[in-house]
Design a protein around this nucleic acid. Structure first.
Lengths: 347, 347
DNA sequence: CTGAAAGCGCTTACAG
DNA sequence: CTGAAAGCGCTTACAG
């Protein structure tokens, strides 16, 4: 245990990092006093505090995370789990980054959980957010069992009340979309859902909202279900089917990016998208579906959603919110702009 | 320190998690023996090992991460830093998830570093990957100074040799793109780069490759630079300019997603994209530019790139690779399909 | 094959 | 205002 010297440099030449004990020895103070000076707990005289801080700065002292964590039983990290199937969608990226931002602003790191967590483990986080989890996924349960506070972004079907939840008003937004299209003249609205292999609360909600709206609008249910990770071929097949249904003059696609991908397919069928035919996305962020003004979309505000989810988690950690709190994250409907070209064609 | 009892349940009722000491007391063994049995170091008799493991399983013992980390000076986590400007691009999401996957398969968690790291800190990782860093960013330097092994995905201009590097063959791929277009009849190829505010090695490389190719192909340099986060308005302005240049019959856009967004803009100008006019992307992943077969693209294989980057980092940690190792991650050129529609129009 | 002990670097009662 | 000491839960020489 060589004394840290070599004055000016913060870099230690003997391999070990600078510790509180190193500072204490040099300043002829106790560990306690140095720790207090560093922590800023009022017990220490201003002069001592300044001496300690000066040397700490000079020697490049950084508090050892593991030691602190062992003592305080907190890790300084928050976890995020995104289900494997949808990982690559921009929506989740935005969400994750919003979350990372919020976590960082509170001094926490963000740990991305891997798809298949080891059997039993120390998660190494003070709390976790999970998003769009299927009821079958075991991770939320494991987290709760390990005593980790959990926020589910999108409730987990059949597990309500087991943890906190933050949700977008999915049924309401879907309803608004259908109403918008009808107000713009749509008579028969078809709907494509990822319920096929993505039966999470959001997908169930919007699908049920469609069926409910059909009942209320006295319209036949024209729903197709495809994989949330549908290839162009699969998507095109669904589009083909829809186009063949007589009288369909509007199509709402649930999942992110589907509308933008469907548009050229519709156009290839001679459909006048944005003109006599309306196209909508229920998860249309600015990057994908939003790039095309001919598409009406529900913007779920992915980034802000991530911020809000971690906000809730932080509130739970601070005691400001209940472990089973439920919050709503607002979404907004962005109607397609009725463009001149479309109008002209109607003339 | 209540003895852990209440038999069947792994959940402890007194708040503290099960520790090695709890197991040792129950089994009337020493901490050492229990630890060895758990770790599988050969010193322990099969019988003792089984007894220990059985109880550990039954009581739901999980090794305390902080304590282990404090002793072993390793954290079990790897870090990733993606610059704020480009965070939301699918490319980086894919990269991050490939990385998370590789890290997980080696038993490491993935920590996403926040944009603005605190002044001085314990990064809490055993190694880190940074991607497309500008030379001005301080994080890589801080990591290296803290003794954290670093892999730069895309070298950092002016900091070569300070850490390991993994790169795609950017100049080569750009060159191939221009050659492809010329072989398909292009006479004047314009180029749009994000050098404006994203002067990372990749952007510099492809831009220089364009200029070099122009020299060699005896073509005028027709280059525009816009923000890597260009809005549709900004992108449209650049497209307008390009379209006005006499004789331009091909356009290569460097950044991800630009080509897909540019296509409708070009079409609006009456340009026959995929027919008499060629369009290309130098960062065209399957999700964005790749969705349109009329776009030629360089697929950088983002996910595999992430895997390879963390692979290199793990090799460095295990001593299998040098701290200043340099590797290449392959990319591939995906030519636009010359579609029938285009041919027909030429008739 | 098993145990007693030290120590990783910190925080936190407890004293004075 | 400052100090001596215990202890978080683990790993790792060192003994026997």
């Amino acid at each position: 245990m060589a004394t840290k010297v070599n004055g000016s440099s913060g870099k230690d030449l003997d391999g070990g990092a600078v510790t509180i004990l190193d500072l204490a020895r040099e300043l002829r103070l106790s560990k306690t006093t140095v720790a207090d000076a560093l922590a800023g707990s009022g017990r220490v005289s201003t002069e001592t505090r300044d001496r300690v801080r000066e040397l700490a700065e000079k020697w490049g002292y950084v508090s050892n995370r593991a030691a602190r964590s062992l003592r305080t039983r907190s890790t300084g990290a928050l976890g995020l789990y995104v289900p494997p199937t949808v990982r690559t969608a921009p929506f989740y990226m935005e969400f994750a980054l919003g979350g990372a931002e919020r976590a960082a602003s509170a001094g926490f790191d963000l740990t991305l959980f891997a798809q298949r967590p080891a059997r039993r483990r120390d998660f190494g986080v003070d709390g976790a957010v999970v998003i769009d989890m299927s009821a079958a996924d075991e991770l939320p349960r494991q987290l709760v069992a390990a005593g980790v506070p959990v926020v589910a972004a999108g409730r987990i079907l059949g597990h309500e009340g087991e943890h906190a939840v933050i949700e977008t008003p999915d049924r309401e937004m879907a309803h608004q979309m259908f109403e918008l299209m009808r107000s713009r003249g749509a008579r028969r609205i078809a709907f494509v859902t990822p319920l096929h292999d993505f039966a999470v609360a959001w997908a169930v909600d919007v699908s049920e909202a469609y069926v409910a709206w059909c009942g209320q609008a006295d319209q036949e249910v024209l729903m197709r279900s495809i994989s949330v990770a549908a290839t162009d071929t699969e998507l095109a097949a669904a589009i083909d089917e829809v186009v063949r249904i007589p009288g369909v003059d509007a199509l709402v696609l649930a999942a992110e990016g589907w509308a933008a991908r469907a548009k050229p397919m519709l156009t290839a069928h001679g459909v006048d998208v944005g003109g006599s035919f309306q196209l909508g996305s229920l998860a249309g962020d600015p990057l994908t579906d939003g790039a095309d003004a001919a598409i009406s979309r529900v913007d779920l505000g992915a980034r802000a959603f991530g911020v809000d989810a971690f906000d809730l988690l932080l509130d739970i950690l601070s005691g400001a919110a209940d472990r089973a709190a439920v919050r709503v994250h607002p979404a907004r409907l962005v109607p397609a702009s009725v463009h001149p070209g479309a109008a002209r064609r109607d003339d």
